[in-house]
Design a binder for these strands. Structure first.
Length: 928
RNA sequence: GGGCGAUUAGCUCAAUUGGCUAGAGCGCCUGCCUUACACGCAGGAGGUCACUGGUUCAAGUCCAGUAUCGCCCACCA
């Protein structure tokens, strides 16, 4: 099978037929909706996307086949910081310019231009993977439709009092020079020092010692705090210290927050005195509020020291640290410096250490929204798969702080807020939230602001035209959180919104359960009053063979496009589905491979399973179809026409269909792939097809029935496998529709044709499962296996045939009827089945259930090998029997275990005893 | 610091509510170009279910603890 020959053509065929386009038109009444987690426009497809989108496509295709009105909504995310950073970097490299050289308007124009060129690359890659998204509906988080949703949501939140402006300590990225939310940080271990610094008391009566990892922030200290329970507090609180280097007098205050030396979490390194820097530490900020301490901001936007730092002005924060420590050292004020390691927040974009920085920002008030979202999960309106991720979600929501949504960037949704310059409009209430953090100038400069749906011309309060829009843009996740709504047309009451919302399932990785999933639930509930999706399926993270995350920088990533080139899209997909269990990680051993052109890629043997399976499917299908000669003369069969093996494969098929359906509905993707694989390869190919060869060669009515069953089983298998491997199944389908149109098997097992498999019906469940027949087949397969084993062990050439005698007890009649099965598959030329057969001389033997198989070998028998075989079997049986006997002789077991279990153990003991007897007799016969 | 997950064959993973002799794919060994498929066919070897205790008639599965690896969260004394 060569995927390259079919994939592009088939995909185009689907597109041309409009198979992926969904409309709420009433013909298909049950909606099934998935919105894609919008990949970043800056991105290229990686293995995580490949997995994520394969799983979505499996569900969408399965539900489309089940007759649902299946919509898979595609699109991309503008990814504010990431995209702006990419274009800015390009600008610098190619034109040696910064965004400030170009100005806001031109920069944005450039980013749009860049997006036009590269923004859909990842979607094109998803198309190659076979994703059946409704591309006509492709959205972009920054397009007009999404912008309208963002504007509406912002205004609604603003009017509900859930958005406010405040001067707060936020996470400042000094490189990108923007605020970041808590979720855009990553914590990294940093090696630094712990400094104990002496602050002299103003009255000259000594000093106090503070401990810090950030000596440079002392420039902004406005107090020294100690615990009121500290015995020294009585004498010291209320006194003043002289801040070294700065020579500012600051008070010693009492605050419970401060740990006593040796007590509590921080006690180990506490001196009992805490330097308080309200403008640069969140805890100190709180202390500052409690004690009405002044805030001294010592940093510029780039985290260099500002004018408040006096002589240190202009120094970078880390340079300042060194200089200040040196200066303190020179003054003899460094009491100690100890090496120390701790976690420091870094920007996940720029990797720069975050600076807690005081600035005016917009916040979404989170308490009420968080409760809405948490209740949705607690009440089961949103369900997580696997369930445990619900806890992650709830934990996060329960500890949620207000969400800083403003970013000092240009690429994004501009905040829909305007300020009036008329001082008469100023409204202190609007600033109540940030009063404590404001300087005199800022208080003087505060202006009335308002939010509006349409760009306003005048101030609604005074009518002045002197209004300006806020400079900032919204956090990317603000628009992402509206994605299920905005893609369907909200706030307009579109037919799509009415029909497809709420969506059925969200498939994503666990990394963004909080960032994205929780916020979508909040926004869905706040804006539409309904959850955005009912189920959330969290899939595994793919790690390399050493258990490390794949990344560009580590060079251990596997590029799905390379895999498509090497193995085909179906192979990629099948392998990914196959490895999807419930665990949070899966490993994929990666190996390097040199391509013909000299390019080196990362690949993995894990994909061979998919390639091999597609190849198997392709060849078995070709073979099947090549044996459907005279199809036009065949007709649906009746139950009486079916042979034992026909009934068996139909039973297996029914089992595979019903179980696969259940597994897919339960998001058990791996189980589904394993089952469909085993059905096709092990049941259909290894047994039914092999058996069919003889029946087809024979001709007659049995041949025609076999052809019907073959065509039907193949038809159903293709449907079953299509969601996972759409290309190869569709390619085979084309040929099957041509070779064998109208594949109804019989009453109760129909297979209406379809021009394209993608829109064919999901296999219907039938009543053809028959456990008795499957049990009988186990016996037959066991006998064939036993004879094959003996042949193999005795070195009998595959083409040479052997005689066989079976002693079958009450199964003799059944086995006699199935003699053909045994002879054709085990290469037996002369088969005798007796209820109680004599052991032929010089025969190898095996026990299969209640039957015993003898293969007379005359001079061919290798006594040593046979002795070893039998001894091995005897050992196994004895071990088993010992276990069962131990159980049965345990009075407690017999008394307390489930009677059914006891019965089956007794039966097993009897079987094992019988088997052991026969095996020992065989060994004895060998010695004679 | 808090939470979660994993640990089963050389490798990657399975194993319903505890209950047949713990399975599959890859890899390995043997033999095969058998009326599709060598990306294949037939056969085989390979496991102290991380460790220690406990509950139970019965534990890979439940409980407690230990170890190792990994992930997420956490306001920097």
């Amino acid at each position: 099978y060569d995927p390259k020959e079919v994939e592009d053509r088939i995909y185009k065929k689907w597109l041309d037929a409009g198979d992926f386009h969904a409309v709420p038109d009433g013909a298909r009444k049950v909606p099934y909706t998935i919105v894609i987690p919008p990949p970043n426009v800056t991105g290229a497809l990686h293995l995580g996307h490949a997995l994520n989108n394969t799983l979505q496509d499996v569900l969408i295709r399965r539900h489309r086949m089940a007759g649902d009105n299946a919509l898979w909504m595609p699109g991309t995310d503008h990814a504010g910081i990431a995209t702006q950073a990419v274009v800015e970097r390009k600008l610098m490299q190619e034109e040696k310019k910064t965004r400030h050289d170009l100005g806001r308007e031109e920069t944005i124009r450039r980013i749009w231009e860049w997006r036009k060129l590269y923004g859909n690359r990842i979607l094109d890659q998803l198309k190659r993977m076979g994703c059946s998204c409704d591309w006509d509906r492709t959205r972009f988080t920054l397009d007009e439709q999404c912008a309208r949703a963002v504007r509406h949501a912002f205004v609604a939140l603003f009017n509900a009092g859930l958005i406010y402006r405040g001067k707060r300590l936020i996470n400042w990225d000094p490189v990108l020079q923007t605020a970041l939310s808590d979720d855009e940080l990553e914590h990294e271990t940093v090696k630094t020092s712990f400094w104990n610094i002496r602050y002299p008391l103003a009255d000259g009566s000594g000093h106090v010692t503070v401990a810090t990892t950030r000596p440079e922030t002392m420039l902004g200290d406005t107090a020294v705090a100690m615990n009121p329970k500290d015995p020294r507090a009585k004498a010291l609180v209320g006194k003043k210290v002289v801040l070294p280097l700065v020579n500012r007098e600051i008070p010693i205050i009492a605050d419970d927050y401060v740990s006593l030396p040796g007590e509590g979490d921080k006690g180990a390194f506490s001196t009992g005195f805490l330097k308080v820097t309200p403008a640069h530490d969140p805890n100190d900020f709180e202390i500052g509020l409690r004690h009405k301490l002044p805030l001294v901001n010592i940093f510029n936007r780039d985290a260099s020291i500002n004018a408040n730092g006096g002589t240190y002005r202009g120094l970078d924060r880390f340079k300042a640290r060194k200089v200040i420590v040196a200066d303190l050292e020179a003054l003899g004020l460094i009491e100690s410096e100890k090496p120390y390691e701790h976690e420091v927040a870094h920007s996940d974009r720029s990797k720069a250490p975050i600076e807690p920085w005081l600035s005016d920002q917009w916040f979404v008030k989170s308490d009420k929204l968080a409760k809405l979202a948490a209740d949705a999960v607690r009440e089961g309106k949103v369900r997580f798969f696997p369930e445990r991720y619900g806890d992650t979600y709830l934990d996060w929501l329960d500890n949620l702080r207000d969400w800083c949504v403003s970013r000092q960037l240009w690429w994004g949704h501009r905040i829909p807020v305007w300020y009036c310059s008329n001082p008469a409009c100023a409204d202190p209430a609007q600033y109540a939230a940030c009063e404590a953090g404001s300087s005199e100038e800022e208080r003087a400069a505060r202006r009335f602001f308002f939010s509006a749906l349409e760009d306003p011309k005048t101030c609604p309060k005074c009518g002045s035209t002197e209004i300006v829009q806020d400079e900032d843009v919204l956090d990317t996740w603000f628009s992402s959180s509206l994605w299920p709504l905005s893609t369907l047309g909200w706030p307009e009451k579109t037919p799509e919104l009415a029909f497809y919302y709420p969506t059925n399932v969200l498939i994503t990785s666990r990394g963004i359960i909080t960032l994205w999933v929780a916020r979508m639930v909040m926004m869905g509930l706040f804006n539409a009053g309904k959850v955005p999706f009912r189920d959330v399926y969290i899939h595994a993270t793919i790690l390399d063979g050493k258990g490390e995350t794949m990344s560009k920088s580590k060079g251990n990533g596997v590029d799905p496009v390379d895999i498509i080139e090497e193995y085909g899209a179906d192979a990629l997909r099948f392998s990914l589905v196959h490895m999807t269990g419930e665990t949070q990680d899966v490993r994929m051993p990666v190996e390097k491979k040199k391509l013909e052109g000299g390019r080196e890629i990362n690949t993995s043997k894990k994909f061979e399973i998919g390639r091999n399976f597609c190849n198997k499917l392709w060849n078995a299908s070709r073979f099947t179809m090549s044996n459907l000669d005279g199809w036009a003369d065949t007709k649906p069969v009746t139950e009486q026409d079916l042979d034992f093996d026909d009934r068996w494969i139909l039973s297996r098929l029914e089992w595979a269909v019903s179980q696969s359906t259940e597994e897919l509905d339960a998001y058990a993707f791996g189980a589904y792939a394993h089952r469909a694989y085993a059905f096709f390869w092990n049941d259909f190919c290894d047994w039914y097809l092999e058996r069919a060869k003889a029946k087809l060669a024979k001709g007659g009515a049995s041949k025609r029935t076999t052809q019907r069953v073959l065509a039907f089983a193949l038809d159903q298998a293709l449907r079953l496998l299509h969601p996972a491997i759409p290309y190869v199944t569709e390619a085979i389908w084309e040929k099957l529709e041509e070779t064998a149109p109208g594949r109804d098997l019989m009453k109760g097992a129909s297979a209406p044709g379809s021009p394209r498999l993608v829109v064919a019906a999901w296999p219907e469940e039938t009543e053809l499962r028959n456990e008795a027949i499957e049990a009988d087949m186990d016996l037959l397969q066991g006998i064939v296996g036993a004879i094959r084993e003996i042949r193999s062990e005795m070195g009998i050439a595959p083409k040479g045939s052997v005689k066989a005698v079976i002693s079958a007890g009450e199964r003799a009649e059944f086995l006699r009827r199935q003699a053909d099965f045994i002879t054709s598959l085990a290469g037996v030329s002369d088969l005798a089945v007796e209820a109680s057969a004599q052991r032929p001389a010089h025969s190898a033997s095996a026990v299969v259930g209640s039957a015993e198989v003898f293969v007379p070998l005359e001079g061919l028998i290798d006594f040593a090998t046979e002795r070893k075989r039998l001894t091995q079997r005897i050992e196994t049986a004895e071990k088993g029997l010992a276990g069962v006997t131990a159980k049965l002789s345990n009075a407690n077991f017999v008394a307390r275990a489930n009677p059914e279990v006891v019965e089956s153990e007794k039966a097993r003991a009897a079987d094992l005893t019988a088997e052991l007897g026969r095996l020992k007799a065989s060994l004895q016969a060998l010695e004679d």
